[in-house]
């Protein structure tokens, strides 16, 4: 599959490296959190833990409570039951700015950029670098361009012309710029709201690659999606929401792609979805068996990152990461 080709074997090695829990406490944790709007209970009893360097996938159908969940974590809404902890301390955000100050950044699919502005202006929008004393305080354009270029390259995005309006980039590239921006401005936890929903297969692959890149840089990633395939390619932990409650919360080693899809669909819709899935699988023929192999290896050797021989080349560069932490 194209995604795997784009993701290079490194993706697999990276997933394995990150699968064993590193012993640190979660950066963001929800304990029995819930939210009621008047007499409507949108979310109830949700447990979620986001660790540094791990991708936590939140799956669910429309109306399952995914949006409410992110809104609580990103500070747009407040939870009405349970606990919300950042670095082990209970918090209650009233604005997205407070969440940002704690290093929690949300990248919304449509709220990411200003299309007509150049890439570098978008990158620094709202946090511009300036130089000079007040009356003539001006943008430090050279430094901003250089920094934006460096940050984008660090995420593996190469753009020839940072002056081009960001609207001329493809949807996936735009999403990646937004992710790189969040990473640059000190995000520790990145919330991605359905970043692949409007994208084609190849573009989704690009975004998934940068999710993995952000994860490898030590960020905790919350990946909201209703595509179990995308989730399974990068996820370390899967939480499936259904009608506002957690239906499944499992590590990668405890669940297969098929189980995940079943949980996503649930009961009556299952038959119809299986049919659909078969078609999707038709596209994914190269990729999916690999994923299953991967799960098997992880289950047998959860603490040995270098175990899979097929990804030995790519496992080498990621190995030093746990020691560095």
């Amino acid at each position: 599959m194209t995604t795997n080709a784009a993701g290079r074997p490194g993706t697999h090695g990276a997933i394995l490296e990150d699968t064993p829990p590193d012993g640190e406490g979660p950066v963001v944790e929800l304990r029995g959190a819930g939210k009621s709007y008047g007499n409507i209970r949108a979310l109830h009893g949700v447990d979620l833990a986001v660790h540094s360097g791990r991708v936590t996938c939140v799956l669910g159908d429309n109306g399952a409570g995914k949006s409410t969940l992110i809104k609580i974590i990103s500070g747009l809404h407040q939870h009405s039951e349970g606990e919300f902890l950042v670095d082990g301390a209970p918090v209650r955000f009233s604005t997205p700015r407070e969440a940002l100050d704690k290093g929690i950044a949300a990248v919304y699919q449509d709220l990411a950029t200003v299309p007509l502005m150049p890439v570098w202006r978008n990158f620094f929008l709202g946090s511009e670098m300036t130089k000079g004393p007040w009356p003539v305080r001006r943008l430090d354009i050279a430094r901003m361009k250089r920094t934006a270029d460096e940050e984008l390259r660090n995420m593996g995005i190469v753009l020839d012309d940072l002056e081009q309006p960001i609207g001329t980039l493809s949807g996936g590239q735009r999403q990646c710029v937004a992710i790189a921006r969040a990473v640059h401005f000190g995000a520790r936890v990145l919330i991605l709201d359905e970043p692949t929903a409007a994208l084609g297969v190849k573009q989704s692959g690009v975004v998934l690659k940068y999710i993995a890149a952000a994860r490898d840089r030590g960020l905790g990633v919350i990946f909201i999606t209703h595509n179990p395939h995308h989730a399974y390619m990068v996820g370390d932990h899967f939480s499936v929401l259904r009608l506002g409650t957690l239906e499944l919360s499992a590590d990668r080693s405890e669940v297969s792609l098929e189980e995940l899809t079943n949980h996503m669909a649930g009961g009556a819709e299952l038959a119809a979805l299986k049919h659909e899935l078969a078609q999707v699988r038709g596209v994914d023929v190269d990729g999916l068996p690999e994923e299953r192999d991967l799960t098997a290896t992880t289950t047998t050797a959860p603490t040995a990152p270098a175990a899979p021989a097929e990804s030995a080349t790519s496992a080498a560069p990621v190995l030093p990461a746990p020691e560095g932490k």
């Binding site: 000190g186 030590g218 932490k325």
Partner: peptide, 27 residues
């Protein structure tokens, strides 16, 4: 910041600053 501590750049090879994408020719 935690990501500063020895970031494991395994997945995307960070391209050198001289490298160009090549798909977007300058008008």
């Amino acid at each position: 910041m935690s990501q500063q501590a020895a970031p494991a750049v395994g997945t995307p090879p960070a391209p050198g600053s001289g490298q160009r994408d090549g798909r977007t020719a300058r008008r």
